[in-house]
Design a protein around this nucleic acid. Structure first.
Lengths: 122, 122
DNA sequence: TCGCTTCGATTACGTATGTAGTCGGAGATT
DNA sequence: AATCTCCGACTACATACGTAATCGAAGCGA
């Protein structure tokens, strides 16, 4: 079963979802825009993602080119479901209600959601 | 800053949010409906929650009565925000759209959400 | 061919987490 | 008072995670 991707690993995945394949060094240089990690750290995270089968690599010369194996959509879906299951008894409605209460939704936001819902109903 | 509550700890919090104060033994007996934990495990989790200031205890005779310190609403809000920040760039709408796509919402669900939105708009 | 550079692999290490056992003290029992 | 029992505190230990250093092989420049 799909092992979970940690917070730090997610930063790596985001890079690869944006562009792939990339070498470890490429990933590191991009990730450095956000996080202050050493190259070694990035490599460790890539290895762990490999072990979790969240990314794959192809040999290019003497280095590796990494690509995501897990789809971002799938990951997002899984994590969203996890939250809904953990905190809202698996029900979608309470989450919407909760978020709606928390957030100050603009009328435009609401209109957009309504449109979405109308489309779903058809 | 509020330390994070782990999955296992959350199970304990849920018990205490439902009813409090409770002794460790009470919590354990209730949690056993869901999880197959030993009393020792429950006590450890309670200690850790105490250390995280997520619960408090009051001495009653020679035992403790535990009560939640963190409000469920706050916790849920925090975790929801965390997910939205991590995966949806902090935007609420994409999450709703995503969930709406994933879930098979019944017409009744949709109607309910629409009602909620109408109320908010006013 | 001999270092130097560059990779991936291995090892490291502190904290968090899941899960639980043990110990010492305070009450209860006899 | 001697013992039994129950409780919280402390200890244990494997795995995950964040963060990184080091090591050995392979290629490259001189």
């Amino acid at each position: 079963m799909q092992e979970r991707i940690s917070d730090a690993e997610l930063a790596i995945m985001e890079i690869l979802w944006e562009q792939a394949p990339l070498t470890a060094t490429d990933v590191a240089s991009r990730v450095l825009d956000d996080r202050d990690w050493s190259l070694a750290t990035v490599k460790t995270l890539l290895s762990r993602l490999l072990a979790k089968a969240a990314v794959e690599h192809r040999t290019e010369g003497r280095r590796f080119l990494y690509s995501p194996l897990v789809d971002r959509e799938d990951y997002v879906a899984g994590e969203s479901k996890r939250l809904v299951d953990r905190l809202f008894g698996g029900k979608f409605m309470p989450l919407v209600a909760h978020l709606a209460e928390q957030e100050k939704l603009s009328d435009a936001d609401i209109a957009e959601i309504e449109k979405l819902l109308r489309e779903m109903k058809s």
